[in-house]
């Protein structure tokens, strides 16, 4: 049995095909697109909210997408323990939908930034990281609004409950401020909810899954969730 990834297509999603291609053509799982006006998740095991600029992000990133018909189904799915990954704009939509805590502000340098970054994997005993065999992953970012912020008590709770999965770091895992590309509190690059079935992250693992592009570090995240489901 292969797990089925449902990739949501919002108007303005532009990493939908990349996510679909990575999980299906590169990693060999099943994948299907789900149109934002639909409410049927078509028996997907994992929902991916892909990157992009849903609705142009002319208001606040992800702010309009959360009102799409499909989001109601996704919230219900997630609340029932279904697995959801929000990548970049997808992470922003998860925050706007209150499926994860906090907000993503403009990068501290105000500018959009696209480059490879290193991520320290904080927790490898986790549905989204159980197959990660490195302590540091190299995965690209591409965003203008990736500066994670939450109130101190929320941050403390995320830290205490092991919900912070990835932090921006150097190649050898140092989380000094100089390795923080966007100003995120505590170098936060990716978090889960307390139940650990919802992952939001700014970096793009689907861009680091195909050996042709010279970097497969991101594949481990998709393998992890697949393995977790098959367990």
């Amino acid at each position: 049995m292969k797990p089925v990834f449902g990739v949501i297509v919002f108007p303005g999603s532009n990493c939908d095909h990349d996510a679909y291609y990575a999980v299906k053509k590169v990693l060999g799982y099943n994948a299907q697109f789900i149109w934002h006006k639909d409410t049927d998740l078509k028996n997907s095991d994992v929902i991916i909210l892909p990157g992009g600029f849903s609705y142009g992000d002319y208001l606040r990133t992800g702010a309009i997408a959360r009102f799409s018909p499909v989001m109601k189904s996704i919230i219900e799915f997630a609340n029932n323990g279904g697995f959801v990954i929000g990548i970049c704009n997808g992470f922003q939509i998860l925050l706007e939908s209150n499926l994860l805590p906090g907000v993503l502000l403009k990068n501290k340098k105000i500018k959009f930034e696209c480059k490879d970054v290193f991520l320290k994997v904080e927790n490898r005993d986790h549905p989204f990281t159980n197959s990660v065999d490195k302590t540091v992953l190299k995965i690209p970012i591409a965003h203008g609004d990736g500066n994670y912020f939450a109130e101190p008590d929320v941050i403390k709770s995320l830290e205490d409950k092991g919900q912070i999965v990835f932090r921006y770091s150097s190649a050898d895992g140092s989380t000094d401020d100089e390795f923080n590309p966007n100003g995120s509190i505590n170098n936060i690059a990716g978090i889960t909810n307390e139940r650990k079935n919802i992952l939001g992250l700014m970096p793009h693992p689907e861009r680091a899954s195909d050996s042709v592009l010279g970097n497969e570090d991101g594949a481990a995240i998709f393998h992890s969730i697949a393995n977790h489901i098959l367990k």
């Binding site: 500018k111 959009f112 930034e113 696209c114 591409a142 861009r207 592009l213």
Partner: peptide
């Protein structure tokens, strides 16, 4: 070029 998304569509070798 870091202000440009140079990788979307996952074809950039």
């Amino acid at each position: 070029y870091q202000q440009y998304d140079s990788m979307v569509r996952t074809n950039t070798i």
